[in-house]
Design a protein around this nucleic acid. Sequence first.
DNA 1: GATCGTTCTAGCATTACGTCA
DNA 2: TCTGACGTAATGCTAGAACGA
Length: 228
Amino acid sequence: MDSSPHMIFDSSLSSTRARLLVLGDGNSIFRGLRSAEEHGATKRLFFTSPDEIYEEEYYEEQLPEKKRRLTPDQVNLLERSFEEENKLEPERKSELARKLGMQPRQVVVWFQNQRARWKNKQLEQDFDRLKSSYESLLADHAALFKDNEGLRLEKLSLDPQLKSKDAVEATKQVSVAHTGSSNAKPSSMWTPSEGSSAPVLSEFTDGGNYYVPACYASPAYFFGGGEL
DNA sequence: GATCGTTCTAGCATTACGTCA
DNA sequence: TCTGACGTAATGCTAGAACGA
């Protein structure tokens, strides 16, 4: 039996806990639990494979600080890789880590954070789009409301004239009925044009001017926007 | 085939640190 | 030099998928 001190990784722990670093000869085991709590969260503590302990040692030699910003070159390559595919397969993770001189764990973390940043940007863009769409609809609504109000007032002003005209027509019809004429038609009935069974455009004109409902004639209806 | 334990990763919230005005 | 705001690397946790026993 080999009694020399050695290190092994205990695979019995879940991945959410840091791995146990097992030191000793296999019988008398010293287990150094690499957890942030245990170390007062002052050190980055992550090993995920036996290889990575060497990477970690290398990493710590390179950076005395607790936290180091990535270099522009590292960020560039990560961003290009992220644009190609925002998910990280194990092979790509290892390859990127090797190329960039980073820990695989750092690459994973960068992708996670980048996905979060990307999602935030998407949310902001969606919000802006919805906001401008809402403002446009609001302006349309205000324009339609204003036109509708104008038409309502116009109708109110015309009502007395219509009533007096109807009264005259009613008087005429009473007179016609009394004399027995069969050519007269009630004025309220629509009269088709010659050879036509449906109203034609000219019947919605007045001296060459078309009657177009005001709401459809409003620039706001067609182009949206604008304060009223 | 169903179940269980392990491993890995995504997603999310949060913390800790670096930078800059 | 100090400080607060902001960006970002890293951590902690949960859930789910994949895989082997």
